[in-house]
Each structure stands twice: as C-alpha cells, then as structure tokens.
Amino acid sequence: MSQQIAIFGSGELGQTLAQSLQDIGKKLTLFDHHADKVASAQAKGFDAQYLDFKNDELLKKAGVGDSLELLFALFEDDSENVFLCLSSRALAPELRIMAVSHQPDATHRLKAAGADKVIDPHHLSARRIYQIMTRPLVAEVLEHTIFGQQDLELVEIAISKDLSSKISSIGELQLKDFNVVLVGYLGQSEIIEPELGYLSPDHPIKAGDVLLVVGKNEAIEKVKKFMDIFD
C-alpha cells in the first residue's frame, strides 16, 4: 500500500510541495483550516479538505496514528505548526513529521514538539544562493541531478535480506555494467557518518544497508530489478 501523506497548510507552499510529491507518484491530501486556501488548492486539482488541526478527533480521522506515514506541517504561523506537531506526535509516536519554520527560534520549539525534520526555507535558500555564488559548477551539476527535472537522479537502494544472503561484498553486484555511479554507502547498524566517495569492491554488504547511486532513471530501474532477482 502506498504511503499516506498529509500536508497541513494548503497555501502556495503546500501546493508546491504537493505538486512535487505527485511528480514522483505519491498520493497525498492537503488540509487547512482556512476555507479560501482549501478552495484554492481544490481549484488546482489537488485533494484538499477543510480540517481544524486543533481537534484531535479530526486528526485521527485524517489518519494520524493510523494509516498516515508522513505529515508535513506547513502553516504560515510557527505556533500553529508547533501545536500540530505536538498533537500529531502524541497521537502517533512513529509518524514521520516534517515542519517548516519561519522564525529562527521556532526551529528548536518544533523539534521539541516532536518534528523529525525542521526546515527553514529562508536559511536554505540563502545556502543555495551561497553555493551558486561560490561553487557554481557544483551547484549546476546538482541542479541536474538532485534538484533537476532531468532524468539523472541520486537514489537510495536498500539491500534486502534476500540479497544479503546471496552476496557478501559490493564488487559482486557489478554495478559498472549498468552505467550508474555508486557514490555512497549507508550502514543501518552504525550511527556513524555515511561513507561517500570511492568504495572498494570488497566492502561488505549487510541487510538493511543502503546504496546511494546516481544514474538515469531507466538505468536505476534496471539495477533495482537486477538486485531483486539476483541469482
């Protein structure tokens, strides 16, 4: 069953995110307690509903604590986002919550209220601009991979238990044949930094670990399929 995603805040920010998620095939619902924002989202074709976030019963009905796996708190008011994160975290300890913060001090409060990830759009935009200014080539290349609309992507591929029983090191995957570049490895068991850069073919593989791969869409799909049916 595909993830259930809820976006609270159906103004321009929420709609931009909703579009972005739909582009990768995710199903989602927008919620807001301002009728005009709900209407505007509906007018653009999104699945948007009116919901008062202060009411726990309504939150539960929306799937918090139940089928919902991912929640975005994108209200324009930091205090509303804090309230929402707190309510949701109380109802659903396992829920992944991402919140937006508009004032620098709100970040701590959102984390304390239970958000897994807090993003400050202004701070991040500033970093992006700084990168464009100081490392323009890198910024450009990133634009065409991670941020880009082109078909080059940076993707995580998990090692299944099945696969890990068949091979013991990276080299055996022969990724070179697929025209993808292996750029990093994330070990699930360690809480240490992920490894980026060159990985030797003898690097051991464990179930649950994640490979970071860059390549064209089709190539990555092929790799995934290959790893599924590895024999």
Partner: peptide, 23 residues
C-alpha cells in the same frame, strides 16, 4: 531561487528517500 521550490524539493526527498535523506 524560489524558497518554496527549495522546501518542495527537500520534502520530496524526505518522502521518497528517507534513509538517504540526510546524506
């Protein structure tokens, strides 16, 4: 540079690639 676009991109990765997200 669009701040909303930046948020949307990060949100997309958060949704799509949870493990590699931080990296």
């Amino acid at each position: 540079i669009s701040p909303y676009h930046v948020v949307a991109t990060i949100g997309r990765e958060f949704a799509g690639q949870p493990v590699a997200f931080e990296v």
